[in-house]
């Protein structure tokens, strides 16, 4: 795995979305989920997406992942137009880990490589080193049913890194966890991110989480989802829990809160 120099402010555009719209269904019961979204993300950035429930955040992420096709508009990731899944460039994570229950943790991590026919000698060491990265080296041979929710999501993080993607798309990956675990997972994710410097797009309901993790926060409107504004989070890294209490953090949080319509 290649370590990226810390060129976080780098300007190489890795995600580009132009005039993206999405309509589910057709005719009388059609539903406009996204309307005219344009955005761009530079390589290595950690961006978060917040917005009211049902505004199309998950839809946007699925379109970025090539798992849902847009009604109009274009998406490019790392120079390639996205028309279907690009497993070697993009990996996704959801609220649930979707680990295969009959495979052990390490077998789940190496599963994407197995699908590509990678030999054991290559995939197993890589999977083990990623499990170590997420602190699960002692649980490599456990089955998902024997792991806690947080541990399952750690396995999912390891699995999402195994193909060395350029972009990680995460849809509320820690939403099902208790608050303490969520905070800890957020910090661990930041550590992993700082080590590998992949670009991350992270959807969340939590404004605090959104600001704490991000370089940029994208705020979306209620359905049909549009990008209302992009906020630059100028807190230094590494982030610490204390920053959540500081004034700049609170101000930003309030602005986003009002923008979404928290009143």
């Amino acid at each position: 795995m290649n370590h990226r120099p810390t060129a976080r402010a780098g300007s190489v555009e890795i995600i580009k979305v132009e005039r993206l719209s999405k309509q589910y269904g057709s005719g009388a019961n059609s539903l406009r989920a996204l309307s005219d979204i344009s955005l761009s993300v530079s390589e290595g950035q950690f961006v978060t997406v917040v917005g009211p429930s049902g505004c199309g955040k998950s839809t946007l992420l699925l379109i970025l992942a090539g798992l849902v096709s847009p009604s109009s508009g274009d998406v490019w990731i790392d120079g390639a137009a996205v028309t279907g899944p690009l497993p070697e460039k993009i990996s996704v994570m959801f609220q649930e880990a979707w680990l295969l229950p009959w495979k052990t943790a390490v077998e789940n991590v190496e599963f994407p490589l197995m699908l590509r026919g990678a030999p054991f000698a290559i995939r197993r060491p890589r999977a083990l080193s990623l499990l170590q990265l997420v602190g699960l080296e002692g649980f490599a041979n456990r089955y998902p049913g024997e792991l806690s929710g947080g541990m399952k999501q750690r396995v999912a993080i390891a699995r999402s890194l195994v193909q060395e993607p350029r972009v990680l798309l995460m849809d509320e990956p820690f939403a099902a966890l208790d608050e303490q675990t969520r905070t800890r997972m957020g910090n661990e994710l930041l550590q992993v991110w700082e080590k590998f410097g992949r670009t991350v797009v992270f959807v969340t309901h939590g404004l605090t989480e959104a600001i704490y993790l991000a370089d940029f926060v994208f705020v979306m409107s209620a359905r049909p989802g549009r990008i209302l504004e992009r906020f630059h989070v100028e807190l230094p890294r590494p982030r610490t829990i204390e920053m959540i209490g500081n004034e700049a953090f609170g101000r930003l949080r309030n602005r986003i809160w009002h923008l979404i319509g928290g009143a």
């Binding site: 899944p85 649930e96 994407p112 590509r116």
Partner: peptide, 21 residues
């Protein structure tokens, strides 16, 4: 459906989704 979506994202083709997942 989450399993199939995840498998698709990981690069599984139709046959692999059906018979390996």
């Amino acid at each position: 459906h989450g399993f199939a979506t995840m498998a698709r994202a990981m690069g599984a083709n139709r046959r692999q989704i059906m018979f390996r997942v």
